[in-house]
Computed example of a mutant assay.
Amino acid sequence: MLTIGKQDASSKAAARDDQQPRVAVGEEGDLLGCAFSGNWTTRRVATVDAEMRAIERRGGHKRLALDLSQVGRMDTAGAWLIERLIEVNEKRGVEVTIQGQSKIAATLLDAVGEATGRNTDARPALAPNIVIRGLEAIGRGVYSMCDDFIAAMNILGATIGGAQMKLGRGHAINPAAIFNQIDRMGVGAIPVVSLMSLIVGAIVAQQGAYQLRYFGADIFVVDLVGVLVLRELGVLMTAIMIAGRSGSAITAEIGSMKMREEVDALKVIGLNPIGVLVFPRLVALVVALPCLTILANFAALGGGMLAADLYSGIPPAAFLDRLRAAIDLSTIFAGLIKAPFMAIIIGIIASVEGMKVGGSAESLGLHVTASVVKSIFVVIILDGLFAIFYAAIGF
């Protein structure tokens, strides 16, 4: 029995020796041949690593022939050793041929070659000229604008259709969510909007007073401040502040919910994300922005009145008398009419950018920035279109 046990142990050791990777090297003229055998797997290739490196350092041959017909099993570690030998010789200009490899070995060698870059074109692609790059940027921008427009119309249509809290069914509007957003976007913005408008109104009056003084027309600084603030600056500056303050907050809130998959969770439980997340914020903006515009107009006129008294000696009573003669209801409503449209644009752009946020913090930051920039840009464009429309109809 002891003799039989020794024979079994020796046969197992012989079997293990047959599985060890081996390399037989032969050289004839300018041809170097390497015959591989055994199992080239992660557990065994360490035994031939030094031998493979020695073969890599050999020179004086122009052709390298590799025979893999006796190779048993192979994984990526074994394929990487053989691929390293191929890559070193190809860099020297040696012609390499492989024969006898199995389908698995061929697949592994190709995959490792692509990973190391040997099977790819090493020549760098020529960059297109500046004209092609410019046209490409314009084309990509147009496609991006088209996608954003479709997403914006989807959100606007769903919002106009109602709160749509339940997918496919109407549902009562949640007043608590709307009033909460009005408090955050409207009441919370009163200090910064009032202070900004006060300073802007004072600056306009101060600069106007210096210029009109040369013509002896100091009193017309009231006309300048009144018309400019009520028709243009009041609503425009308020919309820009809301785009930077509330628009970025909407994008960040919806984007963070998108990152944490809360938007998908709303869909799973049968709620419409537009009705739950977008509708209250959009309604709150439409209500808050005109109210903030009225407050901004009063603050700007107050700043202009203060500056006119300090720099031109126009008392508040004279300022108000001239203001009543310089403006009418059309001047007041010309600015207020713009406010709801600007609020809708800010809310839709912020919501679209929030829905586009991916799964990283970098994506969130990029889309918050894009939301503010796009909102301010479109608001200014809309203000210019309103100015053109008012001039065309004589309003």
Rank of each mutant, 00 (worst) to 15 (best):
I182S: 09
M185D: 11
G188R: 12
A189R: 07
I190S: 00
P191F: 12
P191W: 07
V192K: 03
L198K: 08
I199G: 05
I199H: 03
I199R: 07
A205I: 06
Q206E: 11
Q206T: 12
Q206N: 13
Q207L: 12
A209P: 02
Y210K: 13
Q211F: 02
Y214D: 12
G216C: 07
A217H: 01
D218S: 10
F220Y: 15
D223R: 07
L224A: 05
V227L: 14
L228F: 09
G234L: 07
V235H: 11
T238W: 06
I240A: 14
M241N: 04
S246Q: 07
A249K: 09
A252W: 06
S256H: 08
M257W: 07
M257I: 10
K258L: 01
K258R: 15
M259V: 15
M259C: 10
R260H: 14
E261Q: 14
E262L: 10
E262M: 09
E262I: 08
V263I: 15
V263T: 11
A265N: 04
A265G: 06
G270V: 13
N272Q: 06
G275S: 03
V276F: 15
V278E: 04
R281C: 08
L289V: 15
P290Q: 07
C291E: 00
L295V: 02
F298P: 05
A299M: 14
A300F: 06
